[in-house]
Each structure stands twice: as C-alpha cells, then as structure tokens.
Computed example of a mutant assay.
Amino acid sequence: MNKNEKKQKELSYYHLYLQKHLQENRFEQADDTAFIETRAELAASAYEQARRGGYPIEGAQELVMQTLLKGLHHSRYAILREVIANEFAYEIPKAQQEAFTRKLLPLVDNVFSIYDLSDDLFAQSLDYDLLYSELTGAVVLYLAEYGV
C-alpha cells in the first residue's frame, strides 16, 4: 500500500463526505485540504459532544451535518445547473447541460456577486427567487445571442 492509499484509508467519513460535496458542487474550497480537515475535525467533535450530551445518534448526526456544511449549501455552480435543468430542459439537451453550465458560469459571475450564498437559509429567501430569475434571464439572453 502506497502513501496515498494509506492516507485515503485514514480519512474520516466526514472528510470524504465534505470533499465529495465540495467537488460535486464546484465550491472554491474543493481543493483546500486544510479547510476540509478542519471542518471534518469540527464535525467529529460535534458528534462526540452531542453523544456525550445525550443526543440520540440521529440527532447527533444532524448536528454534524450542520457543522460540516455550514455556509456550504448553495454553490454558484449548483444553482446555475438547477436553473438550466429546470427552465431549459427543452432548449439544452440533458447530455449538454453539464458542459453548458461550466461554460456559462464565469459569464454570470457578476450576477452572483450581490447575493450571500453562505446563508444556509438562502434557498428559502426572496433573494433566492430574485437570483433564480436573474439567472434565467441571463441564460435566455445567452441562448438568443449564441445558441447552444
């Protein structure tokens, strides 16, 4: 077993879960090993403290997920991907949506700049609806000018 394989085996569930979440949703922290390790350690500590405090396993796990994903529920990439999948399924074939999302993301970066995506309740806010509408409009404009 080489060093990388051994390191992978030593990684905690929380570390792997967070790393996968960050990568799949293309968060900036996806390659920040120190950030991931720190968050995973905080999550493990939260679990231990909750269990010692009498929480049932499910309750402790819920606290862990709150700790692990604090401020990481809404990525620019995931929101744009959702808009494209929901609003443009007929215009952009499913097989092309991933590539289209990656291509369009840097072009709509300024749209995201006025919203606080780190708010864990952002998806339930009026700002989310406004952002969703703005992104929908941006995709319409892009398709009108460039097509798929």
Rank of each mutant, 00 (worst) to 15 (best):
L105R: 00
M65R: 14
Y128T: 07
A95R: 12
P93T: 11
L117Q: 02
S125V: 10
P56Q: 12
L117S: 01
F88K: 04
Y13E: 10
H73Q: 12
S45W: 03
Q61N: 15
Q23I: 15
L105A: 03
K9R: 14
A44N: 12
Y17M: 07
E28M: 00
Y17R: 09
Y55Q: 13
K94Q: 10
N25I: 03
V108L: 06
G59I: 04
E24C: 09
P56L: 08
S12E: 01
F27D: 02
T67Y: 04
D120G: 00
L104Q: 08
V108H: 02
E10S: 13
Y115C: 07
G53W: 03
A89E: 10
L121D: 15
A40E: 01
P106R: 12
L117A: 04
F100Q: 04
Y55F: 14
L131V: 04
V139A: 03
Q49S: 10
L42N: 11
S133G: 11
E48I: 04
H15W: 10
E82N: 07
G59L: 09
S133L: 12
E91W: 05
L42A: 13
T136C: 08
F112L: 07
Q8R: 11
V83D: 07
A60I: 06
I57E: 14
L22D: 02
K6M: 10
N110E: 14
P56V: 10
G54I: 01
Q96P: 01
A99W: 05
E82I: 00
L104D: 06
A34T: 13
H73P: 02
K20I: 06
L107Y: 12
L11F: 08
I92A: 03
I57L: 11
I114W: 11
G54W: 02
Q61F: 09
L104T: 04
D116E: 13
Q97H: 05
L80P: 05
L68R: 04
K70E: 08
L131Q: 09
L131T: 07
Q29I: 01
E134P: 03
S75T: 06
K20P: 07
A43R: 00
A123N: 07
Q8A: 13
